[in-house]
Simulated scan of single mutants.
Amino acid sequence: MVVEKAQPAGPREKLLTYGAKELSDAELLAIFLRTGKRGVYVVTLAEQLLGHFGSLRRLLSATLEELGAVGGIGVAKYAQLSAIAELGRRYAASWMQDEQPLLNPDMTREFLMSQLSDEQREIFMVIFLDNQHRVIKNSQLFSGTLNHVEVHPREIVREAIKVNAAAVILAHNHPSGHAEPSKADKMITERIINCCQFMNIRVLDHLVIGRGECVSFAERGWI
C-alpha cells in the first residue's frame, strides 16, 4: 500500500519543509501577521489585504488609517507590517554595502526603488563609490516637499571628499509616481557633474524613481 506524504499544516511548516521561496506572498505575509481575525484564517486575511491594496508594496507602505479601513487590523498588526517594510529596506542597504563592485545596473535600480519609491516627499540620495566602483556608503542627503527638493552640489562634493569617493550615483524620487525627468532634474544634474569634475569625481548616473518605474540618465545617453 502506498502512503501519501502528509502536506504541511500551514505556511510556517511549508517554509520549513520546502523553503521560503516556495511560499506565495500571502503565505509569507501570514507568517509575520501570525494570527487572523475572528472567523478569518490568517492566510485568508493576508489574501484579503493583498487584494484590497493591489500589491505587496502598496500594502507595506499603507498608513494605519488605510489599514484600519480593511477591518480587523489594529495597531499591533500595523506595527508588524511597518517593521517588515523597514527591515526589507535595511536588508537591501546592507546587501548593497557588502556586495562586490557595483557593475549591474539592475542591482542599483532595485536598491534605489526599495529605498525611494514609497517616499511621500522628494528625497535626493547619493551612492558613494571607490575607484573600483565598490559601495562606500549611501546617503539621503537632501529632503524636500511633495514636488521639490533643493540640492546643493557642493555638499555632495564635500561628502565625497570626506569618504574618499572616486565616483557617485545620484538618485531622487517623484512622489507623483511618474519617473520622467523634468527640466530642473537635468539642470541640477549638469551642475553636479560640473562641480564634481573639479575634484576628479565621476558622476556615473542619475536615476529618477517613480512608483514601479525608473529612468536612468546614463541609459538615455545624458551622462
Rank of each mutant, 00 (worst) to 15 (best):
E4S: 13
E4C: 06
Q7A: 15
A9V: 12
P11Q: 06
E13H: 08
K14S: 05
K14E: 09
L16C: 01
G19D: 08
K21S: 11
L23F: 08
S24T: 15
D25F: 06
A26H: 04
E27V: 04
E27K: 05
L29G: 03
I31T: 06
F32A: 14
K37R: 15
R38Y: 04
R38S: 10
G39Y: 07
G39H: 05
G39V: 07
Y41M: 00
V43C: 02
V43R: 02
V43I: 10
T44D: 14
A46L: 07
E47W: 04
Q48L: 14
L50I: 15
F53K: 09
G54F: 06
G54V: 09
G54R: 10
L56H: 01
L59G: 03
S61C: 14
A62K: 07
L64T: 08
L67R: 05
A69C: 06
V70N: 07
G71Y: 08
G71P: 10
G74L: 12
G74K: 12
V75P: 01
K77N: 10
K77G: 06
Q80N: 07
A83I: 06
I84Y: 12
A85G: 01
E86M: 13
E86D: 14
G88I: 11
Y91T: 13
S94V: 09
S94D: 12
Q97F: 11
E99F: 00
Q100D: 12
P105D: 12
P105A: 07
D106G: 00
D106N: 06
M107N: 03
E110N: 13
E110L: 13
L112W: 04
M113N: 07
S114G: 14
S117W: 05
E119W: 00
R121I: 15
F124L: 06
V126W: 02
I127S: 01
D130E: 07
Q132S: 11
R134V: 01
V135D: 02
K137T: 14
S139M: 08
G144W: 07
T145A: 08
L146S: 11
N147W: 06
N147A: 14
H148Y: 15
V149P: 03
E150L: 12
V151F: 02
V151A: 05
R154H: 13
V157T: 10
E159H: 15
A160E: 02
K162H: 14
V163R: 04
N164A: 13
N164C: 05
A167G: 03
A171W: 02
H172N: 10
H174W: 10
A179D: 11
E180G: 01
A184T: 09
D185G: 09
K186E: 14
I192T: 03
I193E: 09
N194C: 01
N194Y: 06
C195Q: 14
C196D: 05
M199R: 09
N200E: 13
D205T: 05
D205A: 05
L207V: 10
I209R: 01
G212V: 12
E213T: 14
V215T: 13
A218V: 02
E219P: 00
G221E: 09
W222I: 15
W222F: 13
